[in-house]
Design a protein around this nucleic acid. Structure first.
Lengths: 329, 329
DNA sequence: TTGTATGCGTTATCAT
DNA sequence: ATGATAACGCATACAA
């Protein structure tokens, strides 16, 4: 009622309850204290609507129960799903999430790491394509999909295995002339292994394949041209295409259909990621599904368990194929 | 090199630079100080890789440069786009974002508000459907799409206007038998006005319409049944349908096409939201586009400008129709 | 078991 | 303009 406009502190609670400051602190932290005292404190807390100030607590304990998460953006369904899962995993452990969207900008990524460090987060989970990202050793970091070196554990899907599965599935479905299409950084990040796995499987199966790989920033038109070059009188040179992401696969399907090529009858297409329309409806295409929940859980576990130092420096989680309408059933 | 394992403090910097603590503080805050002093401090900062501890700063200044954002989830493209925009707007102003996904759970929402309060955030931006959400008056709050009362400003799209536009557009495209389909809470939240606007326009145009409104949690099958009931020998009773979200519109299109009804030739469909496939590709359907960037900017402005008290308690931002393949061009 | 006092890293109010 | 010092709210070692 006659509340001071500023939030109540422990001191206020102590006064209200008629106990010492330390007693209130103990109650708030679940440390055993005389029954009658506990009750009085709890009553005062309720009456004043008191909340522990986590800034004071963090300053004192050097523990903030906050983890920074850095991703390029949230509008890509895969990133959205990943952040969603990370948020859930952190919440389950009573941790808060500080979110930074970098828009793929290395300068922003660096700035955000600095912000996170000075925010004294308990850890950073990042999905960055910036090869030069500098991180202080004072804050634990886990990387997703990009290997920074032995001191920073990296969690990713089994990209290599996924590439193999894609090739094998197409082969199993009768394809004998495969193609791989990819857009992305030339940096040796984990997703690059999708191609390696694909090639490896193609060679093992003795099936011919073509690669179309372009750098980040190249307009999609480059792929459209590629497809056109390889289609003669409505008949494509390929009967199976593995695209590095569902997004690319989706666009590819559209282009092909616009050219009069039937998918999956004439060409079968497999993407990579496994996100769904509106988060919970159909797949965008037949695809290699990343185990997003497991990735998120692994990242959070690693960041929070201090075992980070002796953790394996690269963890690849198993992927699986899922039918999504762009392959033969 | 011989760095202590814990992060350097201002005291360390002062010692290194041979100046007083207060001087370092001034330099870090851009307060004028003797040139030679400034240089020495900056050198020491660089050498020690010093970062201001924002927990200590926050404790002292009672300002955290952190805003909490609460949404149901991130996998829904509209929420994802919204959070993405909010993140950008906050970053532009050097603010950090604490993110909470509530999964529509009122208990979690309440818990998160408490967490945010004790985290001493500078404000809370929330998109909640919990009518009983209790918020302390100590922390500024802005609501999106749900009106909580005069003391909490609400920012939303012009849902009513959007409903009108949908009806008018369908009419303009030749439709004379309209339908509105909606799933959602009965609570008087802003999106409910989409229906009101739609009805208002239908009545003004003198066009007949049918409503199909079901509660949250009802399986989509209810709509499918509704559509089937209103389709005879492949000919639907309606020639235009306004769906409360793009998600529902998308599913509706799929159902109709599966029933052999042509979209948009036989029935035209308009959704609401305007998110895009993979965040930047096609629209999911013809739709009423929410001005997400403007909503985000308005929310952030309101939370950060102290003008919150004398702000209008409800701000409706203009929407617009966009063609997305499910209406006649 | 409870109360008291000190310090976490910073800012801000003082004298100097 | 610069340097010393007292808070900010809390946890904790220590005294009672």
């Amino acid at each position: 009622m006659a509340e001071p406009s500023s939030a109540p502190t422990m001191k206020d609670v102590a006064r209200e309850a008629g106990v010492a400051l330390g007693t209130v602190s103990k109650v708030m932290n679940g440390i055993p204290v005389g029954e009658s005292y506990r009750v009085r404190v709890e009553k005062a807390v309720a009456k004043l609507n008191y909340r522990v100030n986590s800034y004071a607590k963090g300053l004192k304990t050097n523990k903030t129960y906050t983890v920074a998460v850095m991703v390029p953006n949230l509008v890509s369904p895969f990133f959205a799903k990943l952040v969603n899962a990370l948020n859930r995993q952190l919440a389950l452990r009573k941790y808060r999430m500080l979110l930074y969207a970098t828009d793929y900008d290395p300068a922003q990524e660096q700035e955000y790491v600095i912000m996170a460090e000075q925010q004294k987060v308990d850890g950073i989970i990042c999905l960055s394509y910036n090869p030069e990202l500098k991180v202080s050793e004072n804050v634990p970091m886990v990387s997703i999909d990009r290997y920074f070196g032995a001191q920073i554990p990296c969690v990713s899907s089994d990209n290599y295995g996924g590439g193999r599965i894609a090739a094998e599935k197409l082969y199993e479905n009768g394809c004998r002339n495969l193609a791989f299409m990819r857009i992305g950084s030339r940096l040796t990040n984990e997703p690059n292994k999708r191609k390696d796995g694909f090639i490896s499987a193609c060679e093992a199966l003795g099936v011919s394949f073509t690669l179309k790989i372009v750098d980040d920033g190249t307009p999609y038109a480059a792929f459209e041209e590629f497809l056109r070059e390889h289609t003669h009188a409505g008949v494509p040179d390929f009967d199976g295409i593995f695209c590095v992401t569902d997004s690319l696969a989706y666009q590819t399907v559209r282009s092909l259909r616009a050219m009069g090529v039937r998918v999956p009858e004439d060409v079968q297409i497999i993407g990579f990621d496994g996100a769904r329309l509106f988060g919970d409806q159909d797949l965008f295409c037949s695809t290699i599904v990343q185990p997003v929940e497991e990735i998120a859980e692994t990242c959070v576990d690693m960041i929070l368990e201090k075992a980070l130092s002796k953790a394996p420096s690269l963890m690849c989680l198993p992927v699986e194929y899922a039918y999504g309408g762009t392959t033969l059933k």
